[in-house]
Nucleic acid binder design. Structure first.
Length: 480
RNA sequence: CGGGAUGUGGCGCAGUUUGGUAGCGCGCUUGACUGGGGGUCAAGAGGCCGCAGGUUCAAGUCCUGUCAUUCCGACCA
């Protein structure tokens, strides 16, 4: 009997040998994505798009529950519109793609393909908001955006990627700040309960914040190799964009006011996070909540009378119970099927052969820890649902333990540098608030500030870098 | 955007040094036997050797350019 410690799949490079190569192998072997002839762009195959659809459904429900509505805005932004907010255009101009021709005729004004839609939403809000009665505007958009990245990797960084971007406008700063935190919390709750990925919530430093934002908050996840991945961001804009775009409303006292705005987004990078947090040397390991197939039924000796019929009956039963199940009835050998669906990270394998049918039972094998158990066919649906819930829970516990075991604290710079170099993970350290120190830490150690948590600890009185009085505790780490 | 590596049937690769009829493994198709951890045998199909120029009687192989992928940095979700 095998467990997940054994390496069954020769094609996948071991995680510990070469994590980057392992990642690329999993993307290919789990049938997630393929390359196209367009540089830096990827083809999301049905399996990865299926994961994205499950992410979308469950996030979208949360957005709707908190009063948000979906809209769709154009993918083109005229140059003049992009340039209305100074910081914003400076942040994005280096990486936008430009459309200069319509057919063969040059355009009077070139347009960029949206790298993000703040400017379009602002233009729209300026027209659409007149009275305090029009507020708040709680809009979200599911779309793709284009950023001309120099280095790309499937799911983690692509020239075009899928995401959702929420854009809201509020009457007061307090309300907008509340929204910013609400959505940050929505993301962290989603990551933990759906993706089984624990995250560190906090505020970004000035240096790391979004172009044009007053404050940026992020959720940071820890990958298996100890590197950090920014899994989602939520921005508070204050009235900066409102002033640049003239988004004003008349309040109850008949006075003109500027709105206060937010934006927030997560991307298909979450799929990259799923791969790098949960995956092992046999491939992908998916939490049941986002697994396109939660159960794969592998019939044994399927040509034998009654085996396929029984397998189909079990499939129908599970389907009726709301389980996403497939019956692997191709004429491949059982061993091949085991390995194939392990690479794809299917949470539960259900083995069903003549021997089982005779005994009125089936074998369930867990993808996350390799455990096998025998259950009776009578209440197979209840058993499977129970096990799916257990796997979802255990995966979060395992990832949380991994995160906690890789958070270190440093008080001196040599200590800090040693941790960053030899103990991959997050390092907590005090900081004076000066961007120069942040820059210096990065230059000397390769670690960047990830975020400043809401519940800061006081590890020391002085900045790890310059020795001046410390203002904040920062999570640092090497990041993707 | 800098440095390294790689582009040859669907996938992984050999062949390039020394130019001379394009090969191997896996996969694929058909059939039979098999079946509880990537089965066995038999018979088949499948190639503008990344692309564009050039040298040559002759180019997968040599030269120039270009595109893409990948790894390591810098930049970003």
């Amino acid at each position: 009997m095998a467990n997940n410690k054994e390496k069954l799949v020769e094609e996948i490079t071991s995680r510990d040998v070469d994590f980057a190569q392992w990642y690329t192998d999993v993307v290919k072997k789990a049938d997630l994505a393929d390359y196209s002839s367009v540089k830096g762009c990827m083809i999301m195959k049905p399996y990865s798009y299926g994961i994205w659809e499950l992410i979308q459904q469950q996030l979208d429900r949360r957005f709707k529950d908190s009063g948000h509505q979906n809209v769709y805005l154009p993918m083109f932004i005229p140059e003049s519109l992009l340039q209305k907010e100074k910081d914003h255009v400076e942040g994005f101009a280096p990486e936008v793609a430009w459309v200069t021709h319509g057919g063969s005729a040059p355009l009077a004004e070139k347009m960029c393909v949206r790298p993000t839609s703040e400017t379009l939403f602002c233009e729209f809000y300026a027209k659409d908001i007149n009275s305090y009665r029009d507020l708040p505007k709680l809009y979200n958009q599911w779309c793709s955006v284009v950023r001309w990245e120099k280095t790309t990797r499937p799911f983690l960084r692509a020239v075009e990627f899928l995401w959702q971007e929420g854009h809201t406008a509020h009457a007061t700063a307090e309300e907008a700040e509340k929204e910013t935190i609400l959505m940050l919390n929505t993301y962290s709750e989603f990551c933990e309960n759906v993706l089984a990925i624990p995250v560190l919530k906090g505020r970004k430093t000035e240096k790391e914040k979004f172009a044009g934002a007053k404050a940026t908050y992020s959720i940071e996840a820890l990958m298996h190799d100890g590197k950090a991945l920014q899994a989602g961001t939520s921005h508070y804009f204050g009235d900066g964009f409102a002033k640049a775009f003239g988004i004003q409303y008349t309040d109850a006292n008949n006075t003109l006011q500027y709105v206060h705005q937010t934006s927030w987004g997560v991307t298909i990078r979450l799929i990259g996070a799923l791969i790098m947090v949960h995956g092992d040397d046999n491939g992908l390991v998916l939490p049941p909540a986002v697994a396109p197939h939660q159960v794969v039924i592998v019939p044994i000796m399927q040509k034998k009378e009654g085996v396929l019929a029984k397998a189909n009956a079990v499939k129908d039963l599970l389907k009726a119970a709301g389980v996403r199940v497939i019956l692997e009835d191709s004429d491949k050998s059982p061993g091949w099927k085991f390995a194939e669906h392990e690479m794809r990270g299917v949470p539960i394998r259900l083995e069903l052969g003549p021997r089982d049918i005779e005994n009125g039972q089936a074998v369930l094998a867990r993808r996350d820890n390799g455990e096998k158990m025998t259950v009776t066919l009578e209440n197979i649906d209840a058993e499977v649902k129970k096990l799916l819930a257990q796997i979802q829970k255990d995966m979060l516990v395992r990832a949380t333990d991994h995160l906690n075991e890789h958070i270190y604290a440093a008080v001196t710079m040599p200590e800090f540098a040693d941790l960053v170099e030899n103990s991959p993970g997050f390092v907590k350290a005090m900081w004076c608030g000066d961007a120069a120190c942040e820059e210096k830490v990065k230059e000397e150690t390769g670690a960047t500030s990830r975020n400043i948590p809401f519940n800061e600890e006081k590890l020391a009185d002085t900045c790890i870098c310059c020795g001046k009085p410390a203002k904040h505790m920062v999570y640092w780490g090497k990041a993707y």
